[in-house]
């Protein structure tokens, strides 16, 4: 597969501080690449270098085979982006804002503008002045301008900021569609692991300017113990319950601080194990109030583990 975005040994110093250190990775058409890191890790700086807002000190950035430093216009012709907050000309309508971008790029027909406006669901408000848009609507307009010219690479910095849950889902669908159906290489940054899991095919983790690792999302998920399922039992007698369950499943079960019992089963045996645990509790004369499945909180733990111990985070 051909790499759309290729970053080789990129370093960047702002003032006396090294923001990015020797970063190399590639993203491909048809995938959503997530760029994950705590605030201040260098995500925005990296994105600014890729979109041409900042120059790089050393290294090389190639977009669709064009070297950004040497062939600036040709490289950026294949890029669509939102950096930080989507800012528009407030005194122009949404449509006129899109026209501005279309004029700067060329080759964007009126039909394409209409199509993109429909895609992001702004067709009813597109003639209004942007000054009257909500943050969510500006985000949608931001996506519209980013994909207007059918770029091969789409870079979005914290794209879900300010969106409501429905908006986040819409955006996710739009991005997945672009990647999986139209073969666009999408790169998003975020500091939220859960968001990445739902959106990305591959995730690169950055901390303190160093790229720690790049994994397919499945790898991260299994590393986070997603192959297992964790259940929380709420019973009338936690001490006794812990004792019988420890005995039955040959593992140490202790009531947690809320007086509930946590149990982890391998995913494939989860249902039978759960049934067995129920039976054992009832046979032992313990009343079972509720059993609930625990969300993958440990994905966040993996994230913290990957980025931990690298000094203070800067907001």
């Amino acid at each position: 597969m051909e790499a759309i975005l290729k970053i080789e040994h990129l370093s960047k110093t702002l003032g006396s501080r090294e923001i990015l250190h020797d970063i190399s990775f590639e993203t491909y058409g048809g995938e959503v690449f997530g760029f994950l890191g705590p605030n201040g890790a260098g995500k925005t700086t990296l994105i600014k270098v890729v979109v041409g807002l900042l120059t790089l000190d050393t290294g090389k950035v190639t977009i669709a085979g064009k070297d950004l430093a040497k062939d600036f216009e040709a490289a950026l012709a294949n890029l669509g982006a939102i950096v930080e907050n989507p800012e528009f000309y407030k005194f122009l309508s949404g449509y006129d804002n899109l026209l501005q971008f279309a004029n700067m790029r060329g080759g964007v027909e009126k039909e394409r503008i209409d199509e993109v406006v429909r895609m992001v669901g702004l067709e009813n408000r597109i003639r209004e002045k942007v000054g009257r848009y909500s943050l969510g609507m500006r985000q949608r307009l931001g996506v519209a301008q980013a994909i207007l010219h059918r770029p091969k690479l789409l870079v979005l910095d914290e794209p879900t900021n300010g969106l409501d849950p429905a908006g986040i889902k819409d955006l996710r669908d739009v991005l997945k569609n672009l990647a999986h159906k139209e073969g666009v290489a999408v790169m998003v940054s975020s500091h939220l692991m859960s968001e990445m899991e739902l959106m990305c095919d591959r995730v690169g983790v950055i901390a303190n300017g160093v790229l720690r690792s790049v994994h397919p999302i499945e790898e991260l998920v299994s590393a986070a113990g997603i192959g297992q399922e964790e259940f929380v039992f709420s019973v009338d007698d936690p001490e006794k319950g812990a004792e019988v369950l420890s005995h039955a499943f040959e593992t140490e079960v202790k009531p947690n601080e809320e007086g509930k019992l946590d149990l982890t089963f391998p995913k494939e045996e989860a249902q039978t194990s759960l049934a067995r645990a129920n039976r054992i509790l009832i046979e032992s004369g313990i009343s079972l109030y509720t059993v609930s499945k625990k969300e993958n909180r440990r994905l966040e733990d993996v994230f913290i583990e990957l980025t931990r111990g690298e000094g203070k985070q800067i907001g």
Binding site: E87, Y89, F101, M104
Partner: peptide, 14 residues
């Protein structure tokens, strides 16, 4: 001051 400079500068124009 409006922050629109970013959109101007990520266009494929020197």
């Amino acid at each position: 001051s409006a922050g629109t400079i970013k959109f101007l500068l990520i266009a494929p124009v020197k």
